[in-house]
Design a protein around this nucleic acid. Structure first.
Length: 569
RNA sequence: CGGGGUGUAGCGCAGUGGCUAGCGCGCAUGGUUUGGGACCAUGAGGUCGGUGGUUCGAAUCCACUCACCCCGACCA
């Protein structure tokens, strides 16, 4: 490709809209362009990289036994009603009405469609297992798109689905896919970490996410440096420090004028936060819920949501709290009636807590569970945090931000039962097909690769996903010797099947070198009068400081060797 | 959905009631330059996000509205 003919321009200045590094660099490099909030066009350079990533994914999916297919983006609304996932997607679903007043959705994913296709095809256990996959646009009306390609409303996603006759088959396909994912990330230059994840309201037995650890990530992950335990905060378990155990003392009322928050209570009474009980009010599908947890711990809403099995959960608004007759700031589980109380397990460790008294400006001392109150449900609803002890060993947990670059689920039989995907087993008994699904956001992976691989000058593409492998830079192209040599080298490299971007512009060296760095093409070849005097060409890896001089004679083979050596490493 | 912010040339910005709306980058033409974003000259490019209002007069004041960004809520 001749740079002078390229559709797309580099920008010297950072676009105001761009906040994350990947967004800034991708826009400045002319690889993507925003069309609407969370909607982007891939310009030729960006599209080349995207296609290279797709190809890597495709190769790994095929190697794992996958079969690629194509499914529609337009999907009938009914199938989503049937699967019961219309409400779980809620407003995130783009819906449209056709001219016959028929409701359709722009598919946010394709589990429903693929299950329907499989249902029509599979009759016997002999038709299984199946591993279909697809890479295509999905649509989600996210409440807030952000970070350039990191969270968008229209995006290309690879989804692989597994259909098996038994748990053993599911487990095998799960493990094979996990391995394929690891291969994909390493080929894209991403050190992704596999973590335990929440599978959401959809259910399923197990779920893992692949995370790229980085500051700009919107997810929080918990890691144990000692045993390798890793989980999304939504899912993470931990062992909290236990307060010293004491003998239960008699309940005692204390006046606490103007004292509301846990910090204030602890300071006022002169105790640690872990000797207090916190009260938090939620509304779950319209019902007010009283949640109590030790004062030093935060409620994990994902865990709470899973326990309540509700689709909507939010913190109660002041009006909702008042209407339920609760006293914010001095609320207490003691003496409450006709209200669901969910307690965290932490209340069973420690005792003689200070809690609210359900009277303004009053708290209770020496509250003990279960002597003074009972809970409807006692469960783990605690947020694990850095500094807690690992649930699996005596290590101390750490927390990091991460970008989710892949998610695998063991779905089980939820969807196959809902949508009627059954098969006859070898005994002639009808069984629901056991499903798994495995997703990778391709555009997000591209953005993550930039977040991970850049410097102050620009992107540093890993060789396998660079839009071009070689940046051929001609200096003083009005010099016929230079331009003829550059042209010959360009043609020679192309003949070898090497992707070359030939900077044939009449520009100053500074502009060309800066653009080369910004675009992040792995290998830069410079052809200039100065180098040609010694019958040589300068070669420089983007990621290295030092350039080297190669003899012009045999330059094509030398470059080819450099590239193949590089890709072996 | 709540809070905050921004909309003026392709990009980044200045312009708080007064004449023909500016600057830098980029772009076009000519010339001088040429190994890390060169210089000179000339030039093209604007519904000042939109609608309505106030005023002799509005990019500027008021109301409504739209778009985009950030924080939160939310989010496979």
């Amino acid at each position: 490709m001749y740079f002078s003919k390229l559709f797309g321009k580099t920008l010297k200045e950072i676009p105001t809209e761009a906040d994350s590094i990947s967004h800034q660099l991708l826009v400045r490099a002319g690889m993507i362009q925003q069309v609407a909030a969370g909607v982007y066009a891939y310009m030729p350079l960006g599209w080349r990289t995207l296609r290279k990533i797709e190809q890597i994914i495709r190769e790994e999916m095929d190697a794992a036994g996958g079969q690629e297919l194509m499914m529609p983006s337009l999907q009938p609304l009914e199938i989503w009603e049937q699967s019961g996932r219309l409400s779980s997607f809620g407003k995130t679903m783009f819906t449209i009405t056709d001219r016959k007043d028929h409701k359709l959705v722009l598919g946010p994913t394709h589990e429903e469609i693929i299950t329907d296709l499989v249902r029509r095809y599979v009759q016997s256990y002999r038709d299984l297992p199946l591993l279909p996959y697809q890479m295509q646009n999905k649509f989600r009306d996210e409440p807030r798109p952000r970070g350039g390609l990191l969270r968008v409303r229209e995006f290309i996603m690879k989804d692989l689905y597994s259909f098996d006759v038994d748990e053993k088959g599911l487990e095998m396909n799960y493990q094979r896919t996990v391995q394929a994912y690891k291969n994909i990330y390493s080929r894209c230059g991403l050190p992704a970490v596999m973590v335990e994840a929440d599978s959401g309201a959809i259910g399923g037995k197990a779920s893992h996410e692949f995370m790229l650890v980085t500051e700009s990530g919107e997810d929080m992950i918990i890691l144990c440096p000692k045993c390798g335990y890793a989980a999304n905060t939504e899912k993470a378990r931990s062992i909290k420090k236990k307060p010293a155990s004491t003998k239960p003392l008699p309940l005692e009322e204390i006046a606490t004028p103007g004292i509301k928050t846990i910090e204030e209570v602890a300071r006022f009474v002169g105790i640690d936060k872990n000797n207090t009980l916190k009260a938090v009010f939620y509304v779950a599908d319209g019902d007010i819920i009283f949640v109590t947890i030790r004062g030093d711990i935060e409620v994990n809403e994902t865990k709470l949501k899973n326990i309540l099995k509700c689709t909507d959960l939010h913190l109660a608004a002041d009006a909702e709290v008042k209407a339920a007759g609760l006293v914010a700031g001095s609320a207490s589980p003691i003496g409450l009636k006709n209200i669901k109380i969910i307690a965290d397990e932490s209340i069973t460790t420690g005792g003689n807590f200070v809690a609210g008294a359900n009277k303004p400006d009053t708290h209770l001392k020496n509250v003990n569970y279960p002597r003074d109150f009972t809970a409807t449900i006692v469960a783990d609803i605690a947020t694990a945090s850095a500094g807690d002890q690992c649930p699996g060993c005596d290590g101390i947990l750490q927390s990091q931000n991460g970008i989710e670059v892949g998610h695998v689920f063991k779905l089980g039989t939820f969807l196959s039962e809902r949508l009627g995907a059954y098969f006859l087993d070898s005994n002639g008994v009808s069984q629901p097909i056991i499903m798994g699904c495995y997703g990778i956001g391709v555009g997000r992976l591209l953005a993550a690769a930039v977040e991970q691989n850049h410097d102050e000058k620009g992107i540093i593409w890993p060789l396998p996903i660079a839009p071009y492998q070689v940046y051929l830079c001609g200096l003083r192209l009005e010099d016929a010797t230079v331009s003829q040599t550059a042209e010959t080298v360009y043609k020679g490299l192309i003949a070898k099947g090497i992707d070359v971007l030939f900077d044939d512009r009449i520009e100053s060296p500074g502009i060309k070198f800066n653009d080369a760095d910004l675009l992040g093409i792995p290998l830069r070849l410079t052809i200039s009068p100065r180098a040609l005097q010694n019958k040589s060409v300068e070669a420089k890896w983007r990621q290295e400081k030092q350039a080297q001089m190669l003899p012009l004679d045999g330059i094509i083979d030398a470059v080819e060797k450099m590239l193949t050596d590089k890709s072996k490493r």
